[in-house]
C-alpha cells in the first residue's frame, strides 16, 4: 500500500512547494543588493561630512599619486582626493537617474492609461509618437541637443526622461488593453464605476510590479547614459565630481594611479548591477505573492 508515503507527516496545507517558496523569498542576493544601494544613498546624503577631503581642493604637490594612508584611493592630476570625489560623485550618480526613472514612469503611466482608455485618434497619435521616439538613438539625440542648447546636467536628464517614457507608455497601454477584457474589469464597468476609478484602482495596481521593475531598469539605463555623456564632456561641467567625468579626466594617469579610473568605473558597475537585481527580484516576488495570497 502506501507504506512509503505514510511516513511523512501530513503537514498543514502549505500550498507552495519548496521550489516555489524559493521564488517567493527575497533571497540573500536581494538583500546584498539592498545593502549596497542603501550604502550609496547614505554616502550621497552624508558626503559633505564623511568625505575625508574637500573634493574640489587641489594639491598640486601630491598630484597623480597612488593609494596611500592619507589618500586611500590616491589623487588625480590636480591632486584632488579620489575617494572624496567618488563619495560626492554618488550624488549625480543617483539623483539624475532617479529623477529620470520617476518622471518617465509617471509621464509614461498617465499617457499609457489615457491612450489605452480613449482609443481612437488619441491612441493612434500617442502610439505613433512612441514609435517615433523609439526610432531615435537616445545618446546621439542627447549629444546633439545638449550640444546645441549648451545646457548641462539637467538638460541631459530632461532629454533622457522624454526618451525613457515611451517604454512605460507601451507597457501601460498594453496592460490596459489586456485587462479591459478581463471579467473583473467587466464587473467593475457593470458596477458603473468611473473610468478614472477603473484605471487607477483596478488596472494600475495590476501593472505596478511591471512598472516598478521597469523604473529600476530605467534607472540603470539612465545611470549609464548620463555617465557616458559626462565621459564625452556633455552634461556636468568640467571639474564636477561625477563618475563618468572622472573616468574621462583621469584616463591620462591610468599608469600613475589606476584607481582614479577603476574607482568610478566600479561605482557605476556596482550600483547598476545592484539596482538591476532589485528590479528583477522585486518583479518576481511581488507578482508571485499576488498570485498566491
Amino acid at each position: 500500500m502506501s507504506a512509503d508515503s505514510t511516513g511523512a507527516q501530513p503537514s498543514r496545507a502549505t500550498d507552495t512547494s519548496i521550489d516555489e517558496k524559493r521564488r517567493t523569498r527575497w533571497g540573500p542576493v536581494f538583500w546584498v543588493a539592498v545593502v549596497i544601494v542603501a550604502l550609496f544613498i547614505i554616502i550621497a546624503i552624508t558626503a559633505d561630512w564623511i568625505a575625508p577631503y574637500d573634493p574640489y581642493a587641489q594639491d598640486l604637490v601630491a598630484s597623480s599619486q597612488g593609494p596611500s594612508a592619507a589618500h586611500w584611493l590616491g589623487t588625480d592630476q590636480l591632486g584632488r582626493d579620489i575617494l572624496s570625489r567618488l563619495m560626492v560623485g554618488s550624488r549625480t550618480g543617483i539623483i539624475g537617474p532617479a529623477v529620470v526613472a520617476i518622471c518617465a514612469t509617471v509621464i509614461g503611466t498617465l499617457l499609457g492609461l489615457w491612450a489605452g482608455f480613449s482609443g481612437g485618434i488619441a491612441d493612434s497619435v500617442t502610439m505613433r509618437s512612441v514609435d517615433f521616439a523609439y526610432a531615435i538613438p537616445p545618446l546621439l539625440l542627447a549629444i546633439v541637443l545638449v550640444g546645441i542648447l549648451g545646457g548641462g546636467y539637467w538638460l541631459a536628464v530632461a532629454v533622457l526622461i522624454v526618451l525613457s517614457a515611451p517604454a512605460d507608455v507601451r507597457v501601460v497601454r498594453a496592460a490596459v488593453l489586456a485587462q479591459r477584457e478581463m471579467p473583473y474589469i467587466a464587473a467593475a464597468r457593470t458596477l458603473g464605476l468611473s473610468q478614472m476609478r477603473i484605471a487607477f484602482k483596478h488596472i494600475l495596481p495590476n501593472v505596478a510590479p511591471t512598472l516598478a521593475a521597469n523604473a529600476l531598469l530605467q534607472f540603470v539605463v539612465a545611470l549609464i547614459a548620463l555617465s557616458g555623456l559626462a565621459f564625452l564632456g556633455i552634461g556636468v561641467s568640467a571639474g564636477t565630481p561625477d563618475w563618468g567625468l572622472m573616468i574621462a579626466e583621469n584616463r591620462s594617469i591610468l599608469d600613475l594611479n589606476p584607481w582614479a579610473v577603476i574607482g568610478p568605473a566600479l561605482c557605476i558597475t556596482i550600483l547598476a548591477v545592484s539596482v538591476g537585481l532589485l528590479g528583477d527580484r522585486a518583479f518576481d516576488v511581488t507578482t508571485k505573492r499576488i498570485n498566491e495570497r
Partner: peptide, 24 residues
C-alpha cells in the same frame, strides 16, 4: 446612464478565477 443601469442589472461571470481583481 452607466451608474443608473448598474443599480438595475448586475452580473455574475463565468470564470471564478478572473472575476475578482487579484489585487483587491
Amino acid at each position: 446612464d452607466r451608474r443608473a443601469v448598474a443599480q438595475i442589472v448586475q452580473c455574475v461571470f463565468q470564470d471564478p478565477y478572473s472575476t475578482l481583481n487579484p489585487m483587491h
